[in-house]
């Protein structure tokens, strides 16, 4: 869309077809541009049309990332992006994903282009994508630059926090030509967050202390700046690790005992219960362990995407109505 705006002042009157199209995109009725009068002046219309095409071509060289056609072949380089794209109904257009993209079930059947931090350039190029969707949360910057230098259009998703997601999805939807669906997603997300906030507003006043364990041995927990930290804040509990200096710090066991969390969440997973055995033995005097307030939760909160709400619902239900 960008080049239409750029070329108008230069060409004077654009061709009616394009004017119609542009007006349509801007939400106006075609009649506003006086289509009929222009149809009568055929020669000038042709010249203008030609000029316009030339300019279009000229500008499109510089604004590759703003092609007017919604992209048909999408590659997703992050599991949460894959989930978002599927949620926006773009599943059919996805032609490549990372080996980490395991949700929804259909994502597993898509061709793989490698990992998040080390996708294969060759695999990406071979799939001839119209656009490659990436994130600032795990994809290397250099890879994005490399793709762009090869003339491959990229979209970089920058939202990393809960509150940033709706805006991020709206922008993504606009760029991929599914604006309505994206707005619907974002509205629902915002409304749900609002509901959680209201529901837990009272709890926040005398917040219970919570620790969210990502891996027990060595002890890695969810720290500040993570979606999990945001989620804990929304359900009105205090993350005892939010004062750490890393997003996923290796946390001191001594400090867990000293801060004595009332509730411990720990990610479910293969062998997680036996892997955490040793840790909970060391933490046996902590209130959460003593009072059996240790909960194994799904991985819904690990990815910022459509499942995040379910993850919040899950921890919200677990903290609900308990002293």
């Amino acid at each position: 869309m960008e080049y239409h705006r750029l070329s108008f002042p230069l060409v004077g009157n654009p061709s009616p077809d394009l004017a119609k199209k542009d007006a349509g995109q801007a939400g106006m009725t075609p009649g506003q541009h006086g289509t009929r009068s222009m149809n009568e002046r055929l020669p000038s219309r042709k010249i203008f049309g030609l000029l316009f095409l030339l300019f279009t071509f000229y500008f499109s060289l510089f604004t590759v990332s703003y092609a007017a056609e919604p992209p048909k072949r999408i590659i997703s380089l992050a599991p949460n992006m894959t989930e978002i794209l599927f949620a926006l109904g773009l599943g059919d257009r996805i032609v490549g994903v990372t080996s980490f993209c395991d949700y929804p079930e259909e994502a597993k059947k898509k061709p793989k282009v490698g990992g998040m931090s080390n996708p294969s350039l060759e695999a990406v190029v071979t799939l001839k994508p119209d656009i490659v969707v990436m994130t600032t949360d795990g994809n290397p910057k250099e890879f994005e630059a490399r793709l762009r230098s090869m003339g491959i259009r990229t979209y970089v998703f920058t939202s990393r926090r809960l509150s940033e997601l709706p805006r991020g999805v709206r922008e993504l939807g606009a760029a991929l030509g599914v604006k309505a669906k994206a707005d619907e997603f974002a509205d629902h997300f915002e409304a749900s967050l609002g509901k959680f906030r209201i529901k837990h507003a009272r709890a926040a006043r005398n917040a219970r202390k919570v620790l969210f364990i990502v891996w027990p041995e060595p002890l890695i927990v969810a720290g500040p700046g993570t979606v999990i930290d945001d989620a804990l804040r929304i359900i009105g509990v205090e993350n005892i690790a939010s004062g750490a200096k890393a997003e996923y710090p290796k946390y001191s066991i001594e400090e867990v005992i000293r801060k004595s969390p009332d509730i411990i969440f720990i990610g479910k997973g293969k062998g997680m219960e036996s892997a955490s055995e040793g840790l909970f033995k060391m933490l046996r005097k902590v209130p959460a362990v003593r009072e059996k307030m240790v909960f194994y939760v799904s991985d819904d909160l690990y990815r910022l995407g459509p499942r995040t709400l379910r993850g919040i619902e899950e921890i919200s239900a677990l903290t609900d109505g308990k002293p």
Binding site: W215, E217, I253
Partner: peptide, 24 residues
Amino acid sequence: MSVSRDEGIRRAMLWIFGDLSMSD
């Protein structure tokens, strides 16, 4: 480590590069 898709990689790295925190 390069073919493993599991998040176990980071854990394995942390373990290999010395972790005393789980000592009992």
